[in-house]
Design a protein around this nucleic acid. Sequence first.
DNA 1: TCTGGCACTCGCCCCCTTAGATTGCTAATC
DNA 2: GATTAGCAATCTAAGGGGGCGAGTGCCAGA
Lengths: 337, 337
Amino acid sequence: MLSERRKRILRIVVDDYVAEATPVASNTIAYNYDLKVSPATIRNDMAFLEEQGYITRPHHSAGSIPTDKGYRYYVESISGDIELPLAEEYLVYDLFQRAEEEFEQWLRLASAWLAYLVKNMAIISPVRTHQHRLKHLGLVALQDFVSLLVLVLCQAQVRKQILSFDKRITQDELTRLANRLNAAYSGMTSSEILASKTKLSLEEEQVTKCLVDMIDAEDRLEYGKPYLEGLCLMLSQPEFSSSPKMLSILEVLEGGDWFRHVSCQRICEGETRVIIGGENTEEALQGFSLVISQYGMPEKGSGLVGVLGPKRMDYVRAISSVNRFSSLLSKSLAEYI
Amino acid sequence: MLSERRKRILRIVVDDYVAEATPVASNTIAYNYDLKVSPATIRNDMAFLEEQGYITRPHHSAGSIPTDKGYRYYVESISGDIELPLAEEYLVYDLFQRAEEEFEQWLRLASAWLAYLVKNMAIISPVRTHQHRLKHLGLVALQDFVSLLVLVLCQAQVRKQILSFDKRITQDELTRLANRLNAAYSGMTSSEILASKTKLSLEEEQVTKCLVDMIDAEDRLEYGKPYLEGLCLMLSQPEFSSSPKMLSILEVLEGGDWFRHVSCQRICEGETRVIIGGENTEEALQGFSLVISQYGMPEKGSGLVGVLGPKRMDYVRAISSVNRFSSLLSKSLAEYI
DNA sequence: TCTGGCACTCGCCCCCTTAGATTGCTAATC
DNA sequence: GATTAGCAATCTAAGGGGGCGAGTGCCAGA
């Protein structure tokens, strides 16, 4: 258990290092913060904090920087008082007032704003649903044997697929076929469609198979390709001042595998999770911190919203921003269809 | 007019600098290439080439590197003998054999391959058409007053738009409405739809207006968001060894404006244009070279395929690859619907 | 016109030194 | 027992000089 003063010193070390990106010296703490003790005392406390693994030093005669454990302690300790500055609160509110148009298009914009707020990379994944329902299907003749199957799902997503028949079918026949299937399947999930024991013609059978596959594929889909914004903001941080470091994170991001790791975090509703450095199971991300939350609702579909940046990150700002975006995104999503 | 030997030396300077990324010395040329003259003679020729502005030196006692003019001369001189190595020719051919699925999805893959071939960034823009024709339209009720208009265009592109009516309309009514409009408009361009003097109900009028707007928007569309691959390949080049350089090109690319510059190049069919360094009108791209071509056909739609990289680029490889991709993409596009 | 020779220039690397920052420790003080 | 002052020890970063090597420019001669 840390004494109050040691807690305070740890907190100062984190705050100062986050702000300045340089190791924090005992003198700096003594002069800039009114701790009512001498630098020597602070040194003693810092030695203790180092011994306990909360802080470390880049080299022998340097100031200290927080370890993962130090950041973790810091994050746990702040989780009460996290509020976005009022001016920015208004900015975000205003942004969300204008949420309209294509919801998915708009997510990109929101992502850019989040990035701008936290000066790091923002991640917003499009909404995913687990039990898609068919709203409507259309069949369009493209060539003699080839048609286009167009699906409208219940959240107004549109999907298409090319379909080849064994015989020549006219557009009229296709339209009648589509009407019959719409009447039979509208509003159903893929399993309900399979369960409905309707007698089907050969072509109906074929279309049904195709659409069930498409809905299944949609259900199985993990979180889709996320909107990533603020890459340059993040790379402007001193952590990436050398080009190999920059290149290595770019390679990780280009790969796309990293997002699988992010999305397999099981996050409870309303929770904002902070993953710090080595806490990442994905090795490539162990120099980074991730602040991530879920928006939406399980039944209506949900997505991820988060911030990725170096471990030296303004956690208060990141957590409060992600919180705010998560709840506002949920609200917008609920209003959208 | 340059003598044969001077031409040859210029060509060697470009080749060597492209390969090694270090200034080329007269000795290097004398030892590695059988010019049958001494380094001193080569020096004299290089002094001439420098005086004429084909090459320059980073500093007084350094070897030479090509100027924009030097690269330009080089590119003009090679435009005859550009062939992809046979092994890679097969690779590309094989890749295109498997061109199926979603054409647009597949463009991304092609882009990654092109990037890999040229070890720089590849750009492939999706196909754009100027006179879209309506293939089919569908209307799906979402809520009492709100419907989804789904358009299928003649190249199997699907577009959607939400539509609000002034009165409550059932799905049945919507279906009948869609059927009437399909019968009237199928296969037409937006201007043909406007010209057709059919008597319309209020709702038909509204849907017609909406779909004409959508087709118009599609017609007006510039080249869409291109598939960019190979960012890390390009950034691995020694040109970007310092992080500010890396950051500055990333900022340019993130902005997206640069592509407007690329796409406003008017490129003739079958031509592959090379834009070197300062020849770029966009200031941010003046350190870069662009090899760009058009694929497709004006009537059926066309797109851009190109390579972006530092001026020190293997132009032979870039030009031949872009050529090859352009013609194969045209072929695939012609087969695709 | 070409060549060999040679002086000259310049960047780069290495090493050394110095200055500055910061701690760790010890002994004295509250 | 906690705190403090003082001081030596340690380490980094920055600056300066010197030597090396690469490469040219030029001149005189073939």
